[in-house]
Design a binder for these strands. Structure first.
Lengths: 215, 215
DNA sequence: AAGCGATTTATTGTATACAAGATTGTTGAC
DNA sequence: GTCAACAATCTTGTATACAATAAATCGCTT
């Protein structure tokens, strides 16, 4: 695999996990020294990350870890709602039986993990649930776009408090979505998924607004 | 402005206008010689174009003008429908009076140009109409995503025959959309815009399917 | 002492040189 | 005549050197 790809993944990981924080400067030379490569593949990696919106390139000023304002986050969740709603609508019409089983299994996993106290395990089960829906829509491009935006919002989701009450509501919403897709009711699937995402967005925006003094 | 940016625009123009055709190889050296720069900014420009999906980078194989298959086009129009539908829904709730006037003016321009025989002028008036809707949604990120995908599909739209009957229908649809947004009916605006885009996608996909023997 | 300006310094942007891998052409054997 | 293997060549990927621009510091003037 190309070095720049490896560097891209490493940098992405460092940003997502919070090693680099929003607003941090990403100096090419320092990164080159740290990863023991030249500036060329570093620059390539930074440009790729810029295209996904994870870093911001300022002309002749360098690269910075992008920081989303309150408004930015709300905006992205609105787009996420549109994309994921469309995934649900298409999935309700097109989902295969195999995918249907996977979706039900993913939902069951969410329920099981929620009953445990392991917040991370629930987080990943929830992520899996949504990824199954992305794939179930049978539109590769749509699934890619949804996954990309989902990933872009990941560092912000990790900030979120695991409110137990929200988890219970979330599971109920998941059940409704599974039912709608199973029934082939594309309108209901779309509406429920859209609301599910927008609620998450509002919760997260509130949380960010209370912490993000930089914005 | 950075050279790479200029090169990016120039290459994009050449691809969109059909100077380079889907599947064409984009040799770094040739491009560097043609634009009288080194390979470095050429590579940067190609990577940026790859991030928008206009060119495809194959590892150790080079860059090629991306060619969308029948399925690819249909998929992108489905996403376009979701994004533009959301734009319409939000615009119906949030549009300013100034934007409302711009939208009506853009629609009137479409009607006027349609009555003339200048296909290009109608094409640009139509483009303007959709761009106003993107901006009217008051979600900058959503507007950017919609514009980017719109631009990505541009070279394929240019292939399309200007069927007069389709233009008449299109104008009627535009009128319905303007009315729905004006009435603040977000559900109707979303549904009408979505259908408007999906119809275009189907038309275009039929056309491409009859020509694109490579796919 | 404070503010403005020039010079220095550091960092990005571009060019070129080098290395690694892929493609293609040629040559030989079957 | 065809297929395969090897070699030559061409192209991408990376490193380094150089140029240009923006930030910062130091000095001068008021």
């Amino acid at each position: 695999m190309r070095r720049a790809q490896v560097l891209r993944d490493a940098l992405e990981q460092d940003i997502v996990t919070g090693k680099f924080r929003p607003g941090d400067r990403l100096d090419e030379q320092s990164l080159a020294a740290r990863f023991e490569v030249s500036r060329t593949p570093i620059r390539e990696a930074l440009m790729q990350l810029a295209s996904t919106g994870l870093v911001e390139l300022q002309a002749r000023r360098g690269a910075f870890v992008a920081s989303l304002s309150f408004k930015d986050v709300v905006e992205r969740f609105e787009v996420m709602a549109a994309l994921e709603g469309m995934c649900g609508a298409l999935a309700a019409r097109r989902i295969t039986e195999a995918m249907q089983r996977e979706l039900e299994k993913a939902h069951e996993d969410c329920v099981r993990e929620a009953s445990q106290e392991n917040a991370d395990a629930y987080y990943y089960a929830n992520e899996r649930f949504h990824h199954v829906i992305y794939e179930a829509c049978q539109n590769i491009f749509l699934a890619e776009q949804a996954q990309q935006l989902h990933a872009r919002l990941k560092p912000y989701r990790r900030l979120q408090l695991r409110a137990r009450s929200r988890v219970a509501n979330s599971l109920a919403e998941h059940q409704g979505i599974v039912d709608a897709i199973h029934a082939g009711d594309s309108d209901r699937a779309e509406r429920l998924l859209r609301e599910h995402i927008l609620i998450q967005g509002e919760r997260l925006a509130d949380f960010i607004a209370s912490f993000d003094r930089a914005a």
